[in-house]
C-alpha cells in the first residue's frame, strides 16, 4: 500500500515537496489555507524574479501546474489542520476545508507554511499608511505585477524614489534582530525595474550594508553600473511630509557625517520576512519547537535543517527562516526525501 504524507502549505516549498513525493507514488495531501496555490509570490503577484529577472510564472505557474495535474496529490484549498495527534509512529489529522472535515492517518508530515511580510505600520517612524506615497516592497511588487509604477497619490511618474533597506529587520526596537536575506536583492531588482520603466526617475537606496549574497551580487553591480542607481549610507530614522506633495526622508549620511532631510516623490520600504502567526500556530498544533526568531526550529541548523525536533515531522522553505525561492524549492525536495524514508521505514 502506498504511503500517506501530509504537506501543509502550498507555496514553492510545499508544492515542490508534494510533486516529488507524488512522482514516487506517494498519496499526498496538500493543505493550503488560501484559495490558491503558489504562496507569497502568487499572493503578491511577483512578476519578475531575482536573480535573472525571469517571469515568475516560469517558476510558480509551472509548480502549480505540475501539482494540479498530478492525481497522486489530493488538494485542499481554503483549508487548515483542525486537529493533530500522534499515534505511535503515525499521525492523525483532521483537515477542514470548504468541502467539510476529513480525518486521515499519515506516515509523515512536511510543514511548509512559509513567512509573512513584516508590516511596516508596526514601526511608526516610517509613516507607512500615513502617506500614500510610502509603500513597501511587497506593494511595489504587486503594483509592478499589475503594470503600474506610478505614485499612488496622483498616478504620475515619480521624479525620485527612495528605497529604504532593513525595515523590520536588524532592529531590536521592532524585535527582529536577524537579516531577512532577500530584501536587498529584491530592492536592487526593483530599482532596476523602476529605472528601466522610468529612465528619468532618480533611484536612491539607503543602506547600512548591502547583502546581495553570492551571485545575487551581479544584480547589485548591474543596478549601479548600468542603471545609475545611487546608494547612500545611512538608515532613515523618520519620514515626514514635505512641500509639493513629497515625503521627506530624514537620516544621517554616515559617510559625510551629517544629517539629511531629502524630499522624495515615492518611498519604498524594504520590509523583511517574519515567521508570521502560522509558525507558533504550527508549533503548538504539531508539538514542534519555535526558535528565538519566531520561525520553526530546525533540529540541527547545519546537519539537518529540514527536520523538526519531532521524528516524522519535516520542515521546508521560509517557515524556518528568510530565504529565496530556489532555497525553498531545494528544501522542499530534501524534506520530501526525508519524509519518504521515514514513511517507508514505518509503514
Amino acid at each position: 500500500m502506498a504511503e500517506n504524507i501530509l504537506v501543509i502549505g502550498g507555496g514553492p516549498a510545499g508544492l515542490h515537496a508534494a510533486i516529488e513525493l507524488a512522482e514516487l507514488g506517494v498519496n499526498v495531501s496538500l493543505v493550503e489555507r488560501d484559495t490558491f496555490f503558489g504562496g507569497n509570490p502568487k499572493k503578491f503577484k511577483y512578476k519578475y524574479l531575482f536573480p535573472d529577472l525571469q517571469p515568475a510564472d516560469n517558476v510558480i505557474g509551472e509548480l502549480v501546474k505540475r501539482a494540479e495535474s498530478n492525481n497522486n496529490i489530493k488538494k485542499y484549498l481554503s483549508a487548515n489542520i483542525e486537529s493533530f495527534k500522534e499515534d505511535g509512529k503515525k499521525f492523525n489529522a483532521v483537515i477542514k476545508s470548504s468541502a467539510g472535515s476529513e480525518t486521515k492517518t499519515f506516515d509523515s508530515v512536511i510543514v511548509a507554511t512559509g513567512f509573512e511580510h513584516f508590516d511596516p505600520a508596526k514601526d511608526s517612524k516610517y509613516s507607512y499608511q500615513l502617506f500614500d506615497d510610502v509603500i513597501d516592497i511587497k506593494d511595489l511588487e504587486r503594483m509592478m505585477g499589475e503594470g503600474n509604477f506610478t505614485r499612488p497619490s496622483n498616478g504620475k511618474p515619480p521624479k525620485n524614489v527612495a528605497i529604504i533597506l532593513c525595515v523590520g529587520s536588524r532592529d531590536r526596537h521592532v524585535g527582529n534582530q536577524y537579516c531577512s536575506r532577500v530584501c536587498c536583492t529584491v530592492s536592487v531588482k526593483q530599482a532596476i525595474e523602476l529605472r528601466e520603466h522610468f529612465p528619468e526617475t532618480e533611484v536612491y537606496i539607503f543602506y547600512m550594508d548591502i547583502r546581495t549574497y553570492g551571485f545575487y551580487e551581479d544584480l547589485y553591480w548591474e543596478a549601479m553600473e548600468e542603471h545609475d542607481v545611487q546608494i547612500v549610507k545611512g538608515r532613515v530614522a523618520e519620514i515626514t511630509s514635505g512641500p509639493d506633495n513629497t515625503v521627506i526622508c530624514k537620516g544621517e549620511d554616515t559617510l559625510l557625517r551629517g544629517p539629511f532631510e531629502i524630499p522624495f516623490d515615492m518611498v519604498v520600504l524594504a520590509s523583511g520576512m517574519e515567521g508570521g502567526p502560522q509558525s507558533p500556530e504550527m508549533a503548538e498544533k504539531l508539538g514542534i519547537e519555535l526558535d528565538e526568531h519566531g520561525f520553526l526550529k530546525q533540529a540541527n541548523v547545519t546537519l539537518s535543517p529540514f527536520k523538526s525536533n519531532k521524528d516524522g515531522i519535516f520542515l521546508a522553505g521560509a517557515c524556518t527562516g528568510p530565504k529565496a525561492i530556489a532555497d525553498a524549492i531545494v528544501e522542499g525536495g530534501a524534506a520530501a526525501m526525508k519524509a519518504y524514508i521515514y514513511a517507508k521505514k514505518n509503514s
Binding site: 545611487q230 539629511f260 531629502i262
Partner: peptide, 26 residues
C-alpha cells in the same frame, strides 16, 4: 542639514572621459 541630492553633477561628470565610471563607486 543636506536637503537635496543634485544629480546634475553626476550626469555632468559621467559624460566626461575621466569621470565616466562615477556610477561604480561603492
Amino acid at each position: 542639514v543636506d536637503s537635496e541630492f543634485d544629480r546634475s553633477f553626476f550626469d555632468e561628470i559621467q559624460k566626461t572621459v575621466v569621470g565616466s565610471r562615477i556610477n561604480r563607486c561603492w
